[in-house]
């Protein structure tokens, strides 16, 4: 099995590499655009996928409502930015406040969702929690739709065009640059949080064994809440950035983005933080190539196909570890 993996890996990389090099030689600028576009896309996926993978790592639940948290982040930033804009505030202040509100509100929603829909079901069968998560996702979508509007709302980018970036803007916009840089910074911060802080250590311990962690004095409820809050925060950043990039949002944006991010998390190995980042980048870039060179209508089909293939041939993902069920 080990050798089959290695050989199939080499074959796939070989084929992809051949076509990649061919395309690179024929049209390098287009190729580069696709790579950068894929990186941008992958960065957004990564910001969302982190929440999935962290929550899954700790309570083994696919948090279906996570995409909605991301949507609520984007929506809050839109509302705050519009209100402050009409009040005529300074644009730099607006940017900061929009981000802050988006993050704070997403965290609050993430926290509340966990308390309502998942905490009472922690000892219940997995199916119950999963159904509850789907219900929550449906509820939040419709809540935003009814309270706001079912239509797409134009979103004025919060991120200005940087002057220094002017010469390269035709390949990659300022927004895209911001997205990639922000993602890198967030990843580094998050990595430090998990690796070095007390709460990060508690998170890792809880992911390993909840009962044991509570015995050594870790407040498991607090750790789980923190996980939701941290995941929501990164999702909110992703939400605001993607809204700037795409230029319009509605209540449904969380659905597909959430799914894609989940696929990315599975691709990288669910439960693994570096895996989520790697999986997101791989998914983003390969999607970008697929739509760029093949059919753009089937973009989502491609992502799901990747999911199915990964789950069949390597369910533990690129970086995930195989788990054995305890008896």
């Amino acid at each position: 099995m080990f050798w089959i993996n290695i050989i199939s890996g080499i074959v796939i990389i070989g084929i992809l590499g051949f076509f990649g090099i061919r395309e690179l030689i024929t049209d390098p600028v287009y190729f580069l655009e696709l790579v950068l576009g894929g990186l941008t896309r992958g960065s957004i996926y990564a910001l969302i996928a982190l929440g999935y993978t962290m929550v899954y790592g700790i309570i083994q639940l696919i948090n279906f409502a996570h995409g909605e948290i991301y949507m609520i982040g984007a929506m809050t930033s839109l509302i705050v930015a519009s209100v402050l804009g009409l009040w005529g505030w300074n644009s730099a202040v607006i940017v900061i406040l929009a981000f802050v509100f988006a993050i704070v509100y997403s965290c609050a929603y993430g926290f509340t969702v966990e308390k309502i829909a998942y905490k009472p079901l922690r000892t219940a069968p997995r199916l119950s929690a999963l159904i509850s998560a789907i219900g929550m996702s449906l509820f939040l979508q419709n809540y935003v739709m009814l309270a706001q509007t079912p239509e797409f709302m134009p979103y004025e980018s919060l991120i200005p065009d940087y002057n220094f970036w002017e010469p390269y803007a035709h390949i990659m916009t300022s927004v895209e640059l911001t997205i990639i840089i922000t993602t890198i910074v967030v990843m580094i911060l998050l990595g430090m949080l998990i690796k070095f802080t007390r709460i990060g250590k508690a998170m890792r311990a809880t992911a390993q064994d909840k009962v044991m962690s509570s015995l050594v004095g870790i407040n498991v409820n607090k750790v789980i809440s923190t996980t939701f809050v941290v995941g929501s925060a990164t999702a909110a950043i992703g939400g605001v950035l993607i809204a700037c990039h795409v230029g319009q949002i509605n209540f449904m944006i969380g659905f597909l983005a959430g799914l894609k991010a989940f696929i990315a998390a599975v691709l990288g190995g669910i439960g693994s933080v570096p895996g989520a980042v790697l999986g997101s980048l791989v998914l983003g870039i390969s999607e970008s190539f697929f739509t760029g060179y093949f059919w753009s209508e089937y973009e989502d089909v491609f992502a799901f196909t990747i999911l199915v293939v990964i789950l069949i041939f390597r369910p533990s993902g690129i970086l995930g570890r195989k788990e054995t069920e305890k008896v």
Binding site: I116, S132, G135, M136, L138, N142
Partner: peptide, 12 residues
């Protein structure tokens, strides 16, 4: 909206 809420409530 109600369907979603009911799903959560029933499960809990």
């Amino acid at each position: 909206l109600v369907f979603g809420a009911l799903q959560v409530i029933v499960m809990v």
